[in-house]
Design a protein around this nucleic acid. Sequence first.
DNA 1: CTGTGTGCAAACTCTTTGCATAAGT
DNA 2: ACTTATGCAAAGAGTTTGCACACAG
Lengths: 143, 143
Amino acid sequence: MDNEVVQNATPIVERLRSAGLRPTRQRVLLAELLFCKGDRHVSAEMLHSEVIAVGEQVSLATVYNTLHQFTDAGLLRELAIDGSKAFFDTNVSNHNHFFIEDRGELIDIQGESIRVDGLPEPPQGMRISHIDVVVRLVAEKKK
Amino acid sequence: MDNEVVQNATPIVERLRSAGLRPTRQRVLLAELLFCKGDRHVSAEMLHSEVIAVGEQVSLATVYNTLHQFTDAGLLRELAIDGSKAFFDTNVSNHNHFFIEDRGELIDIQGESIRVDGLPEPPQGMRISHIDVVVRLVAEKKK
DNA sequence: CTGTGTGCAAACTCTTTGCATAAGT
DNA sequence: ACTTATGCAAAGAGTTTGCACACAG
């Protein structure tokens, strides 16, 4: 039986399909890199390098396009933390981040641990879509 | 007596001097625009437009340079919220922000109101330099 | 005077876009 | 077949840099 292959390939292909995205070679490859290694924070450039590293070829423009398509489909969340470059987070559940300034590195803080109190009312006509907490870290200085 | 003029000009000039910055025409002008209108959130482009609007002339490169010099001197804080462009906040005290996604607009939340609990320990060798809380807002949808 | 700051234009980085070609259904 | 996605290269935004000239002390 050659169902085995189909069964292995199915989860990601299905995930793309149900997000309304055709499972093209590029999208399947990128989705595998993104979603088969636990929670990740990637920039377009990083993901493109990984593609090259595994001996495949996807243009950088397609990486950008695909990251945005995945974000629109709710498979990724875009993070605006660094300022200069965009990061995409494969963990779309409610959580926050440590950001190591010197290295530009992100670490998840699970959603349950942090609680934010004392929020003022949003201006009228507005509602809160999301609260981002970024805990910025620097190397501890010797004393 | 023409001390009046000097006395009006002094605060900003002094502020620049004690930050180790020569009070050049451009820096004084930019400082006046930044610090004489209460707390503000500006991008380089916005500040440059204001310069033009008051009939003065400062190059965009100098606006960028000056914003960074002011930031290094602790007169401004740089905000990385939007992702694509940098904002500078004239309020350098501890506080947080509402961010209106549709308009790219920032509103201060005074520091006392928000409290963040349940922070996990930072990874070892690291200490917390600052915690940014960004409350992202969208237009309330009718129901 | 002397050193620092400024202006300009060009360079740079990250990201998006237009259009012809290729691939999915 | 018909539609949607991809690749490429070029354009675009925002920001930075190098160097000659100008200005503050």
